[in-house]
Design a protein around this nucleic acid. Structure first.
Length: 419
RNA sequence: GGAGGCUUCGCCUAGUCUGGUCUAUGGCGCCGCACUGCUAAUGCGGUUUGGGGUCACCCCCCAUCCCGGGUUCAAAUCCCGGAGCCUCCGCCA
């Protein structure tokens, strides 16, 4: 949700942001008009309510004819107040709707345009030259006895799978390593609910353009989360935080659920695009002035994690049109996938500035003792998909796989060999 | 699944039966001032949150007693619905 003060002070910045996202700048003017109408409606209702309050006091003291007269006027006034309140709540709803329709203001420097207009910021590591036929992650995992897609489909349908034996162990080792790093960096480990209420899902901005991605349990009016960002954002909803000791940082370990509607035919093989996977997600609450610096810190921890599994990657600055509604800027780390000869997203960190926090009403007390809306940020530390990059990049001619050195203590093996 | 209790401005709490000076009481905490070698103690004053007016301050207006409806000239208070927490019973990993 966009700050109304910012809207009034600098509507042109918002129009520019809309254009960069490829969306209608007219939505800004619609919001301005709705804001003005609401202010007028509130003013009228306030005046009438003040009059009614004064009248009420008089009636309380009046007796006889005077009282009868005042009561008659009171009835009339009550009708006017009611009408004014209806008008106010309509204007309120219209404003909220217009406000929710507008995505976050993108940060200066974010490339304009759509999915393919990202800016590559950096390449780290060099893709390995293979002098033998490269196996893809499905072949590798299956021969290691780590994946059963067929039975996944039998039990739950397409895009579901069993991680079996070493596959499951590998995921547990990877996520444990990621979580240990997060804890060492000062994050509080969290195992959150993966079912959340509508207002939490709505507050994080996932029920807008991406509503079709979200599983919904109609009988219970709950949603399955696609990332622990959702419960971690909801964790402090409605609260006033003490950030005097620095940002509040949480690392969520959760299963994530995505419908993958509209992705038929994409990545149908293996575990790249699935309905259910596990993820370690970093989440920060910090003062808005510190958000861009915090964003870089989150990116830094992602890079450490990628270095730890020794996978070549590049960092991209996602274009405005490819940002979620909540994000003001997003950096993706894309790992090299040898079988595809291209980079695929392994981690993603978004700066949501005050957009989510305003919807979820998360504030902090600043140095002057005033309550201000916080900024929220999130970033991926590891997911099931990382297994793809790890196995493919470290495969050997005989189909075995070298375990990255930092992962070995968690897995208890140096080399994975086909069964 | 069933029965009952509770929810008041940071925390605790009075007020709800019997609607109106409730513009919500008191304590704790916190802030300011006074007094006192310092601290403590004591005294006095202040202290919900959000929106709007105001260049800003002072101040003024509106809303806010878990949430949403209703009754009424008027609701913390009466009625209906819902949420959360707690207790007990039943059922079940």
């Amino acid at each position: 949700m966009i700050d109304l003060k910012l809207l009034r002070d600098d509507p042109e910045a918002l129009r520019a942001s809309q254009r960069a996202r490829g969306e209608d700048p007219g939505a800004v003017d619609a919001l301005l008009a709705a804001d003005e109408r609401r202010r007028e409606a509130v003013g009228r209702a306030d005046t009438l309510r003040a009059e009614q309050r004064q009248l009420g006091k008089k009636i309380g003291q009046a007796r006889g004819d005077e009282r009868t007269e005042l009561l008659a006027y009171g009835k009339e006034l009550a009708a006017q107040v009611k009408a004014a309140e209806v008008a106010q709540s309509e204007a309120d709803e219209a404003l909220t709707a217009a406000q929710r329709a507008l995505p976050n203001l993108v940060i200066d420097g974010v490339p304009a345009g759509g999915e393919d207009d990202y800016a590559v910021l950096e390449h780290v590591g060099t893709p390995r030259e293979f002098d033998f036929p490269v196996r893809d992650h499905v072949e590798l995992l299956e021969s290691l006895g780590g994946l059963d897609s067929e039975r996944g489909a039998k039990v739950a349908g397409a895009r579901f799978y069993f991680l079996t034996g070493i596959g499951a162990q590998l995921q547990l080792a990877l996520l444990t390593m990621a979580m240990n790093k997060a804890i060492a960096a000062g994050f509080t480990m969290m195992i959150p609910p993966v079912l959340v209420k509508p207002e939490i899902m709505e507050g994080t901005g996932f029920l807008g353009a991406h509503a079709a991605e979200v599983y919904r349990l109609r009988d219970d009016d709950l949603y399955l989360v696609g990332t622990s960002e959702v419960p971690l954002a909801g964790y402090h909803s409605g609260e006033i935080l003490d950030l005097s000791a620095g940002p509040k940082r949480y690392a969520g370990w959760s299963t994530c659920f995505r419908r993958e509607a509209g992705s038929y035919g994409k990545d149908t093989r293996g575990i790249i695009r699935v309905h259910q996977f596990d993820k370690i997600e970093m989440f920060s609450y910090c003062p808005p002035d510190d958000a861009e610096a915090e964003h870089q810190r989150l990116l830094g921890w992602e890079r450490e994690m990628l270095a730890a599994v020794d996978v070549p990657y590049r960092v991209i600055d996602t274009a405005a049109g490819d940002l979620g509604a909540s994000a003001a800027r997003k950096f993706d780390c894309e790992g090299w996938v040898p079988s595809q000869g291209r980079y695929r997203e392994l981690s993603s960190t978004s700066n949501c500035t005050t957009f989510q926090a305003r919807r979820l009403n998360v504030r902090y007390r600043d140095g002057d003792g005033r309550n201000q809306v916080v900024a929220t940020l999130n970033g991926t530390l590891a997911t099931t998909r990382w297994i793809v990059a790890i196995l493919e990049n470290h495969q050997r001619p005989d189909g075995s796989v070298t375990v990255p050195a930092q992962l070995r203590p968690f897995l208890g093996q140096d080399v994975l060999t086909p069964v």
